[in-house]
Amino acid sequence: MGVKMKTTSKGEEHNSHPKGEEHNSHPPYVKIYVGLLVLTVLSVVISAIVHREYAPPFVFTISTIKGLLIALYYMHLKYEGRIIISLALIPLVIFAIILFIFMPDILSTVKQ
């Protein structure tokens, strides 16, 4: 009478991955890869030309562009639902909170 329900077979039982529903339009992975390489070289070139002290704004915007490329296309955040996107965005909000609310205290005294 006892039904041996294998818990490990949950994959099929519920909410398993609907067959072949997403990425039918595969983003051009190799093109994005080449773009990332170009951007990397660009940021190295910029940091060589511009003096080190003024390089951060340019270099970090390039990094953010590369980060977005990877996140949206390689991590498929472009096709994800609300839950997954919020799980990806909340850590960035926490990062911003830590950075900006700690700043007045950590920078308040110029170290001897």
Binding site: N15, L87, I98
Partner: peptide, 22 residues
Amino acid sequence: GIPFQKIGFWIFLAGEIVILGG
């Protein structure tokens, strides 16, 4: 509509992002 492995992994990843973010 979302496979449980994906949700579980993204929750773990959210924790990791905040660790390295810190």
